[in-house]
Nucleic acid binder design. Structure first.
Length: 153
DNA sequence: GCCAACGTTGGC
DNA sequence: GCCAACGTTGGC
């Protein structure tokens, strides 16, 4: 899951413990949240537009998809006047803090790791804010952070 | 700040 | 339904 750390960072998640992932206004990203995310699923928490950009830590899904009520709040930045609260278009999940990496696993380092070949986030032009991650890729990123399986439990 | 890539909008 | 124009994302 991507976020700009100036908006909401892994440190922010650590502070608040859990966070509703509101504001997603892309159908493909919504579908991943709605169809593929289940409570307990682990998340690579990615800082975009950052120095450096990369994976900053690990989180987990703690509530499955439900309507993103910010879509029909005219005062909200992500207000979508076309949506009907009776038939919500946009969904969100809740995310819980697990671990901040000792240092960010940078996009640059990930590109250089052959074991991450084919990972979606490394593809040119890949802007989706929510992407599925192969288990092997997930483990490799955690390893690059200098952590092991036990650090995440 | 630039700009490539991609998604959405709306005229036709 | 096509596609040009526009808006957004996000690396660099």
């Amino acid at each position: 899951m991507k976020t700009e750390p100036s908006e909401f960072s892994i440190e922010d998640l650590q502070r608040v413990k859990t966070e509703p992932w509101d504001g997603v206004r892309n159908y493909q990203a919504r579908n991943f949240m709605r169809d593929d995310m289940r409570v307990g699923d682990r998340v690579l928490f990615y800082h975009s537009n950052a120095k450096p950009s990369g994976v900053a830590g690990v989180a987990e899904i703690c509530r499955e998809a439900y309507p993103d009520f910010t879509a029909w709040d005219p005062g909200n930045k992500h207000f979508d006047p076309k949506t009907d609260p009776k038939k919500p278009t946009w969904m969100m999940v809740d995310v819980r803090f697990i671990k901040e990496f000792p240092s960010v696993v940078s996009l640059e380092a990930m590109k250089l790791n052959p074991k991450l070949a084919g990972m979606l986030v490394l593809k040119r032009g890949m802007r989706l804010s929510i992407q599925p991650v192969e288990p092997a890729h997930f483990r490799e990123v955690v390893k690059m952070a200098g952590l092991g399986f036990t650090h995440l439990f």
